[in-house]
Write a protein that binds this DNA or RNA. Structure first.
Length: 806
RNA sequence: GCAGGUGUGGCGGAAUGGCAGACGCAGCAGACUCAAAAUCUGCCGGGGGCAACCUCGUGAGGGUUCAAGUCCCUCCACCUGCACCA
C-alpha cells in the first residue's frame, strides 16, 4: 500500500529542490536552439493574485516545460508592471509611499506565484519602477523625442470641477467624478504625444509576417482603421478661407446638401463676428465639452446640432450654396474636424437631415435604379451607379471616385488622402507614480531632452502625491527639482513635471528579460540577437488594441534605430479567456464571487489548481469557476498517484494498450501545441481509465503518463517518478515519442446512414474496397431498404456509408 | 454606436462538412461498510415503447449539400475593447 498523496509535503519538497538546483534558468549558451515564451507581466495590485492570473501562466508554463524536455534553451521570465494609478491612490489614502506599497505587493505576488510551481527564471525578474529599469524607458523616450516622434499638443483632459484635478477615464462615472460626484468637464491642457500614426502602415503590414490568432490581427487592423479618401476644399462665401473636409465618398460630392463642423472647429472662433447666432454656438460647445468622444459617437437617437448662421459654404463642383451646421457627432480628432454631409448615402448624415429637415439628394442608384432615399440612406458601394452627377454619371462608385479625384487635383480644390482612425498616443499623466519625462523647458532653447549620461532621471521623494489644484502633477510643487539648467545652453530651465503612462514600461519589458542586469545598454546586442523575437506571447484580448499595438510601435521604432534586430517583437500571439465566478459573472469584490488561489492551493494543492484551470474549458473562451470541478481534478491526480499500487515491473507497453499509448502521446503533444489543454487532459484521464479497467499498468506506461502530465502537474509527477524508481529527475527527461504507424488500427467502425440518418454501424478492414463495404452495409440494413429505390450510394473511406433512397 | 467574439444535456465542455454530447462535475442505482465518508461498478438530452426500436434535438428563422453544431443569409441574446484602469 503506497503512502497517501499529501500535496503539502510533495509541493514544498519539489519547490525547494527547484529553487536550489535552478533547472529552469535560461542558459547563456547561445549555441543551443532557443525558445522564448512570454506572458503579460502582472500589475501587482493590493488584492494579490486572482484565479484569473494562473490560467495564461500555467498554459505557457506547460509549453515552456515541454520545450525544455524537447531540448530547447527556454526563456520563461516574470516581472512587475508596477507603476500606476491604484497604487498611487492607495498611497494617497493611506499616507504610505507608493514605493513601499509596491514592494509589499510585489513580494506577496511573488510568493503566490512561487507557490504555484511555475518554471519562471526568477534570476531575470524585472520591475518597471526600478531606476535601473526606467533608465531605459526614459532612454527610449529620448530617442523618440530626438527623432521628432514626441511632441506637445493641446489635448482635453477630464477635469473634476470640485476636486480640481485631472481624472482618468475610469474615474469618471456617468459624467461625474467617482470620488466626489461633481460634474466632470473636458479641460484643455498641453500634453506630450507620441506619433504612433507615423507607424500606422508599418503596423498593418507587419501583421502579414507574424503568427497571431486571426481576431487579434483583424481587431488591430480595424483599430488602425486605414481608409483612402479625399480632402476637398469648400469655399466659404465672402471670405478668403476654405473649409476642408475629409471624405471616403468623394463620388457623392454632387449630393452634399450641407456641411457639419465639430464644436471645437477653429473657424467658429475665427468668424465669431460674422456668425449671427454665436451665443447659441457657444452654449452648444459648452454642452458638448461634457461628453467624451465615445459618448458623442454613440448613435444618439436624437442627433443634436445648431446651424451656423452667417456662414455659407459653396460646393466646389456645382457652385451651390449650402448651409454649415455644428454637431458633436463630428469629432475634431478624426479627419479635418469637418464633413460634407450627403444624407442620401450616409446613415448618420441621413438621421441628422431627417431631424433638422435638410434636403436629401440622391446621386447613387442601385444598379442604376433609383431607390427611395427618404426611407433610408443607400450606402451599398458594390451595386451603386452614379446619377445626377454631371461628368461622373453612369460610373460605378469606384470609377467615380477615381475620376473625381483627378478632377479635384486638376482644379486644385482637393486631393487623395489616406486617413487613419488611429490617433497619436497621449503620453502625459499629471501623476506622481510614473517615469519622469526626461525633458526640460528652456526659455531660449524650448523643449530640450536630457543628455543620455544624465539618465536615469530619478523620481524625487515628495510629501504629497495629490495632484495640484491647477491640474499639474505633484512634481510641479517641488521647486528645487523643477528648477534646473538647460542641457543645451546652460541657462535656467524647468523640468517637465508630467510623468509617463503605465504603457511605457510595458512597451519594451520583453527586451530587458534577455539581459536584465545590463548597466550600459537596455540589453546587449548578443542577447537580443539570440533571444528575439519572442516565440510565443500569450495575453488577454483586452490588450489587443493598446498594449500590443503600443509595444509593436516602440519595437518598430527601435528596429529603425538599429537597437533591435527584428522588425516585430512577437512571432506568435495567443489569447486566453477570463475566469468568471461560480455564478457566471465577472469576479469582483462587489459581487462577492472572488476566489483566492491561496485557498485552492492550501486545500487541494497547486497541481490540482493548475490541472483544473487547464481542464476548465476551451482556453480562449471565458469559463465559470466551479469548486466541484476542482474536486474532480484532485480525484484525477489521486488516481494517477494510486496507480503505484497496480504497477507491474515491466519496462514495455502491454500489447493491448500499445495503440492507445501511441495515440495518447500524439494527442497530448498536439493539444499542448494548440492550446487545447482541456482535451489533452481528457485523453490522459481516458488512459488511466483504461489502466484501471484491466487493473494493471506497466512501469513503461506509467512513466510515459507521468512525462505527459508533468508540464501540467509538475510536483506530483516528480514525486511519483522518484517513488517508482525513475532515473534522475523528471525535468531532465526527454518528451515521449510516438510512432505514427502505431497510432492506427487495422479495423475501423463506420456508420451506415439512409438519407443522412444513422441506422447501424459496421466493422470493416481499413483498406477494404468501396464496393465491398457498400455491399456489406446494404446487407446490414437490408430490412430497412425493403420497398425503397436506391438513388445514390456514398462511401467516405473509414468514416461513413450513406445510401440515398426513395 | 463602432470593432471583435460567443451561444451545444442539470452544469463545465467535446466534435478535419461524415455516428452530437468525448472527458469531467452533479444526480440516480448497486458493491464495500454496523453505519457514514472515501473508493469501485453501472446508468445518465427530451418524447414514445415491455422491448428491439422509433422520433425530436446544438440561441431563432431561412438556405446550400447525399450529409450542417460546423458553410451562406437574416435576426436575437450575452461577453470584451473603445484610446488617462491595466
Amino acid at each position: 500500500m503506497a503512502q497517501a498523496y499529501n500535496h503539502h509535503v510533495v509541493e514544498k519538497k519539489w519547490q525547494d529542490i527547484w529553487a536550489e538546483k535552478k533547472p529552469f534558468a535560461a542558459s547563456d549558451d547561445y549555441s543551443k536552439p532557443k525558445f522564448y515564451a512570454l506572458v503579460e507581466f502582472p500589475y501587482p495590485s493590493g488584492q494579490g493574485l486572482h484565479v484569473g492570473h494562473p490560467r495564461p501562466y500555467t498554459a505557457l508554463d506547460i509549453v515552456a516545460r515541454k520545450r525544455r524536455m524537447q531540448g530547447y534553451n527556454v526563456l520563461y521570465p516574470m516581472g512587475w508592471d508596477a507603476f500606476g494609478l491604484p497604487t498611487e491612490n492607495y498611497a494617497i489614502a493611506n499616507h504610505i509611499h507608493p514605493k513601499d506599497v509596491t514592494k509589499k505587493n510585489v513580494s506577496r505576488f511573488k510568493e503566490q506565484l512561487q507557490s504555484l510551481g511555475y518554471s519562471f527564471d526568477w534570476d531575470r525578474e524585472v520591475n518597471t519602477t526600478d531606476p535601473d529599469y526606467y533608465h531605459w524607458t526614459q532612454w527610449i523616450f529620448l530617442k523618440l523625442f530626438n527623432e521628432g516622434l514626441a511632441y506637445k499638443k493641446e489635448m482635453p483632459i477630464n477635469w473634476c470641477t470640485s476636486c480640481k484635478v485631472g481624472l482618468a477615464n475610469e474615474e469618471v462615472v456617468n459624467g461625474v467624478c467617482e470620488r466626489c460626484g461633481s460634474p466632470v468637464v473636458r479641460k484643455v491642457k498641453s500634453e506630450w504625444m507620441l506619433k504612433i500614426t507615423e507607424y500606422a502602415d508599418k503596423l498593418i503590414e507587419g501583421l502579414d509576417t507574424v503568427d497571431y490568432i486571426e481576431r487579434v490581427k483583424v481587431q488591430q487592423k480595424n483599430w488602425i482603421g486605414r481608409s483612402t479618401g479625399a480632402e476637398v476644399d469648400f469655399a466659404i462665401k465672402d471670405t478668403s478661407d476654405v473649409l476642408t473636409v475629409y471624405t471616403t465618398r468623394c463620388d457623392t460630392l454632387f449630393g452634399a446638401t450641407y456641411m457639419v463642423v465639430s464644436p471645437e472647429h477653429p473657424y467658429l472662433d475665427k468668424y465669431s463676428d460674422k456668425i449671427t447666432n454665436y451665443d447659441a454656438i457657444l452654449s452648444y460647445r459648452e454642452e458638448a465639452s461634457k461628453k467624451s468622444d465615445f459618448e458623442r459617437s454613440e448613435l444618439a437617437k436624437d442627433k443634436t446640432g445648431v446651424e451656423v448662421k452667417g456662414l455659407v459654404a459653396i460646393n466646389p463642383v456645382n457652385g451651390k450654396e449650402i448651409p454649415i451646421w455644428v454637431s458633436d457627432y463630428v469629432l475634431m480628432s478624426y479627419g479635418t474636424g469637418a464633413i460634407m454631409a450627403v444624407p442620401a448615402h450616409d446613415t448618420r448624415d441621413w438621421e441628422f437631415a431627417k431631424k433638422f429637415d435638410l434636403p436629401i439628394i440622391q446621386v447613387v442608384a442601385k444598379d442604376g435604379e433609383e431607390v427611395d432615399v427618404n426611407e433610408a440612406a443607400f450606402t451599398d458601394v458594390e451595386t451603386g451607379i452614379l446619377i445626377n452627377s454631371d461628368f461622373i454619371n453612369g460610373l460605378s462608385v469606384n470609377d467615380a471616385k477615381e475620376k473625381m479625384i483627378s478632377f479635384l487635383e486638376d482644379k486644385k480644390i482637393g486631393h487623395a488622402k489616406v486617413n487613419y482612425k488611429l490617433r497619436d498616443w497621449v503620453f502625459s499623466r499629471q501623476r506622481y507614480w510614473g517615469e519622469p519625462i526626461p525633458v526640460v523647458h528652456c526659455e531660449k532653447c524650448g523643449y530640450v531632452g536630457l543628455k543620455e549620461e544624465d539618465l536615469p532621471l530619478l523620481l524625487p521623494e515628495v510629501d504629497s502625491y495629490e495632484p495640484t489644484d491647477n491640474g499639474e502633477s505633484p512634481l510641479a510643487a517641488m521647486t528645487d527639482w523643477v528648477n534646473t539648467t538647460c542641457p543645451c545652453c546652460g541657462g535656467p530651465a524647468k523640468r517637465e513635471t508630467d510623468t509617463m503612462p503605465q504603457w511605457a514600461g510595458s512597451s519594451w519589458y520583453f527586451l530587458r528579460y534577455t539581459d536584465p542586469n545590463n548597466k550600459k545598454e537596455l540589453a546587449s546586442k548578443e542577447a537580443l540577437k539570440y533571444w528575439m523575437p519572442v516565440d510565443w506571447y500569450n495575453g488577454g484580448m483586452e490588450h489587443t488594441t493598446l498594449h500590443l499595438l503600443y509595444s509593436r510601435f516602440w519595437h518598430k521604432f527601435l528596429y529603425d534605430q538599429g537597437v533591435v534586430n527584428t522588425p516585430e517583437p512577437y512571432q506568435k500571439r495567443t489569447s486566453h479567456g477570463m475566469i468568471l465566478g461560480e455564478n457566471g459573472e465577472k469576479m469582483s469584490k462587489s459581487r462577492g464571487n472572488v476566489v483566492n488561489p491561496d485557498d485552492i492551493v492550501r486545500d487541494y494543492g497547486a497541481d490540482t489548481l493548475r490541472t483544473y484551470e487547464m481542464f476548465i474549458g476551451a482556453f480562449d473562451l471565458a469559463a465559470s469557476w466551479s469548486e466541484d470541478g476542482v474536486k474532480g481534478c484532485r480525484r484525477f491526480l489521486e488516481r494517477v498517484w494510486k496507480l503505484q499500487e497496480i504497477m507491474t515491473d515491466d519496462d514495455a507497453y502491454s500489447a493491448d494498450l500499445e495503440t492507445v499509448m501511441h495515440q495518447t502521446i500524439a494527442k497530448v503533444s498536439n493539444d499542448f501545441e494548440n492550446l487545447k489543454f482541456n482535451t489533452g487532459i481528457a485523453a490522459m484521464m481516458s488512459l488511466i481509465n483504461d489502466f484501471y479497467k484491466k487493473n494493471s499498468v506497466t512501469r513503461a506506461e506509467y512513466q510515459t503518463l507521468l512525462l505527459l502530465l508533468n508540464p501540467v502537474a509538475p510536483h506530483v509527477t516528480e514525486e511519483i517518478w522518484e517513488r517508482i524508481g525513475g532515473e534522475g529527475y523528471i525535468f531532465e527527461q526527454k518528451w515521449p515519442e510516438f510512432d505514427p504507424k502505431k497510432t492506427e488500427t487495422s479495423t475501423v467502425e463506420i456508420a451506415i446512414q439512409i438519407n443522412g440518418k444513422v441506422k447501424a454501424t459496421l466493422n470493416i478492414e481499413k483498406d477494404e474496397a468501396k464496393d465491398a463495404v457498400i455491399a456489406k452495409a446494404k446487407e446490414e440494413i437490408s430490412d430497412k431498404l425493403e420497398g425503397k429505390q436506391i438513388v445514390k450510394e456514398i462511401y467516405v473511406p473509414g468514416r461513413i456509408v450513406n445510401i440515398v433512397a426513395k
